[in-house]
Design a protein around this nucleic acid. Sequence first.
DNA 1: CTCATGCCCTGCTGGC
DNA 2: TGCCAGCAGGGCATGA
Length: 304
Amino acid sequence: MPELPEVETVRKGLAEHVTGRTIITASVHHPRVVRRHLAGASHFSQHVVGKRIQSVERRGKYLWFSLESQGHAQLEGLIAHLGMSGQFRVQDERADHPHVRFDAELDDGRWLVFLDQRTFGGVALDELVTDTTKTRTVPHALRHIAPDPFEPGYDPPSVSRRMRRKKTEVKRALLDQTLVSGIGNIYADEALWRAPLHPQRLTQRLTASTAMGVLEAATNVMAEAIVEGGTSFDALYVNVNGESGYFGRSLAVYGREDEPCLRCGAPIRRLAFTNRSSYVCLRCQRPPRLGTSERLSQKGDAAP
DNA sequence: CTCATGCCCTGCTGGC
DNA sequence: TGCCAGCAGGGCATGA
């Protein structure tokens, strides 16, 4: 469940503890963790050893360690995605835990450990290239990921235009990482409540200012969560696990089914959304009024 | 091309 | 008590 604010909290912690360190040994403990590294597990391990961590960077929900090798100006990216349950820890001893998927010994004697219960996360090595906005370098494999709202290449009017050209629901658009990155199910629901907009509103029917408004709401709610995540940060234990911090945050709708809307008091409802959930206040977030064409394509399960 | 859906995976919860 | 369905959900392959 880590979304942009949680990943940024992890990035900061990692940057503090591993910047400047050289990787001495590396081990892959589960093949699935390197499934995106097509050259394989042993290639991955061999190629990170001896590299120095120059910085820890992030775009949306992706992290990468910028690696330099002795005598080479060219940098490589060690990409990491936390998936749903990924955690990084920097610790003094090698971890003995069933969920360790990858670990590396650093030149200060400490260990960088990646744990992941549900194995949706992973790591890969990739070359760094100039991104499409020409404002920064990103791993080649992440070129399709759009800038997140905290990057210099993020251009809200452009994102708003692209969003309104799409033929889809506004919540799907917010979750589209090629449009704007970093927003997941939780912050999408929070942004839509703030806007306020029903998740099934069609992007083509939004005015430019409404589209800009929901993007701004998403940016604000994530910025506030970064501040909260940063304050509860523990030095040696680089926590990433969605559980600590996440649900302690001030969420207005997510997970609050049947509880009162903080704005109007009406009960928060949970709507089915492609095998997951959307939490909404149906009084603040009015469902779209369907036109003839949408009604015809509803196939009988239309709202009353 | 765009958009929607299903799958990957594990541990916990709730119903019977 | 034990079993199993359901749920959590990001990203990508696939099909429409």
